[in-house]
Write a protein that binds this DNA or RNA. Structure first.
Lengths: 338, 338
DNA sequence: ACTTGGCACTCGGGAACACAGAGTGCTAGG
DNA sequence: CCTAGCACTCTGTGTTCCCGAGTGCCAAGT
């Protein structure tokens, strides 16, 4: 059905179209790529490819353009991820190494990725869910309010102000703090709720209301932040490209946490594998015309979160995939080290 | 030189051009606005206004368009800030009231402002400089590393990992923490350096190297973050407009912290006053064609930071200014209350 | 002295049109 | 199964033409 040469033709079409942004015709194809066949032959193959929906022509007698299905085949079978140059690797390394805290790591990552791919980069903050508690801190603000701070092993810090049901003096706060820390230190955030359920009973009866209040805020924090924080950068790279759907829709989608979330995708299968979503495969209507290349990252074996790149369907997939994979690896290293 | 009617004509031109986005001609002007003069008279006035550089025509015999100078006059003398509707006020209030922490406040603010003005909103995080220390926390991570956390009265949290020169056990950490807090609690960040200068001497000699390390990180934190964090939202609102300079430049500018910083502007005179920068008055070349409306905000009398809106020169200044002013006030309230 | 109506003038933008060129599909021959 | 040739079909571009909005100026009116 699709012999080797037809595949070669498809590959050539994708490559040419990506680099020129113009529909590619049979003659140019036969010349530029060493197919060793005549344009007429190429035309026959193209007709077959079009028949099966891999390419299409914008209007009669213009060149051919890959369809989403064509890109899909290209990504799955005709391309291989292109590794970065060693210069690029060094650049990544030094750039990421300068980060001072988690915010900084994420910010540098997203900018780096945007610059590397010349597209829009999207990075999700490391999930709380898979982190462990490193420290819990209670800071008295006034006699009826205190600030609750949760520090995780990935360097993330969550903070909330808690209104207390009663006045509480510092020594009791200190005691509570000690209890909380001894109970929670090192335990996974997902197991916090069960660890904490019988905590009030182990406290003197007069401390229980306060403890309950604090715990409810703690649990709320864990739940609230289940919708994780996501940042993006490189919107300027969209300026040149033209989308079927209009630039506005794309920008709007980028500012919706929820949409970004679904874009990066639920971990499908192996978390460290590259996920590619092409055009209409996309869950969000405003983003037909764009493709997403994403992957998970995380220290060691656990996947902490995901990052990726969004660009026009007409993108250089091998290069983009290479960049995404490389950046994910380096970030994972950095996070593991801290 | 510029009698009342000429000013009225200028105002009418600005208003019409802003709402229609098309050069406005003498006939339409005389009709729509009740100037009670003939088109010919209007033409004479327009000629005078053009002579003095307040308006210009894109090409011979098209309507007139305000110049930057024209907008400037309009803003300074011909318009008055338009207050928000009470519905809008309520919306602001409820939307901002739901914020749980500082990040949340800033995020909600910037989105709110973008939505309200249908333009790009820019918000600077409350400056560390004018805040005071609420608490300092030291969290042991391993025997040679600890996390240093600084909490300010505006709810901002700064964190750094500190590599220690020697192994240190928990009791000494606790002692250091107590010292730091008793010394720094409540004191303004700007005065931290002097407060801290003689601290090592008040410690047992064996703690001094460790204390010095921590203090140097503390001071570094204060300096580093002098370049404040800035966020923006509403980039999608740029999609429709066309800039003389190209959308790309605008988006690029928005991703440069430094540029944004200068955009919001150094506090010129009264911090709570509205600053308007129109087109070429702008410090950054890529942003000719855009105007900025900004103002300071802060709890009480101290200005903490600035926020504002960026849009095409052709914007509805009275409405935009009203929205910026209102949001700044509400944010100030929220911050003061927490 | 200012306002007004009249008038000739200027341009930009859209419609109509022709044309060159790229690209195609088809068919017949190797 | 590949190839060469050929007729056909488009798009994009350049040209021309014309309409109309809008102007500037002038002379007459208040």
């Amino acid at each position: 059905m699709l012999d080797d040469r037809k595949l070669a033709v498809l590959r050539a079409i994708v490559e040419d179209y990506v680099s020129t942004n113009e529909p590619v015709g049979s003659k140019a194809l036969a010349e530029r790529h060493s197919l060793n066949v005549s344009p007429a032959t190429v035309r026959n193959d193209m007709a077959a490819l079009e028949e099966q929906g891999y390419i299409t022509q914008p209007h009669t007698s213009a060149g051919r353009v890959p369809t989403d299905k064509g890109y899909r085949l290209f990504v799955d079978r005709l391309s291989q991820v292109k590794p970065l140059s060693s210069a690029e690797r060094r650049a990544i390394e030094t750039f990421l190494a300068g980060a001072v805290d988690l915010d900084d790591v994420v910010m540098r990552t997203v900018r780096l990725l945007a610059q590397l791919t010349r597209q829009v980069a999207v990075v999700q903050y490391p999930a709380l869910t898979h982190s462990t508690v490193r420290h819990v801190e209670l800071v008295p603000l006034s006699d009826r309010r205190l600030m609750f701070v949760l520090i995780t092993n990935t360097g993330r810090v969550e903070q909330r102000v808690v209104e207390l049901p009663e006045v509480i003096e510092d020594s009791r706060v200190a005691h509570l703090r000690a209890m909380l820390n001894s109970c929670l230190d090192g335990c996974g955030l997902s197991s916090v709720p069960e660890m904490v359920v019988d905590l009030p009973e182990r406290l003197p009866v007069e401390d229980r209301p306060v403890a309950a209040t604090i715990l409810s805020v703690l649990l709320e924090t864990l739940v609230d932040r289940h919708d994780e924080k996501i940042v993006f950068a490189g919107a300027a790279n969209l300026a040149g490209a033209d989308f079927t759907t209009g630039l506005r829709d794309v920008l709007e989608a980028l500012e919706e946490q929820v949409v970004l979330m679904r874009l990066l995708g639920e971990t499908s299968g192996t978390p460290s594998a590259l996920t590619v979503r092409i055009g209409s495969e996309n869950p969000y209507t405003g983003l037909r015309g764009t493709s997403i290349v994403a992957t998970g990252y995380g220290s060691g074996d656990k996947q902490l979160a995901r990052l990726g790149v969004l660009g026009p369907t007409r993108m250089d997939y091998p290069v983009t995939m290479g960049a995404v994979r490389a950046v994910a690896r380096y970030v994972s290293q950095i996070l593991a080290a801290s």
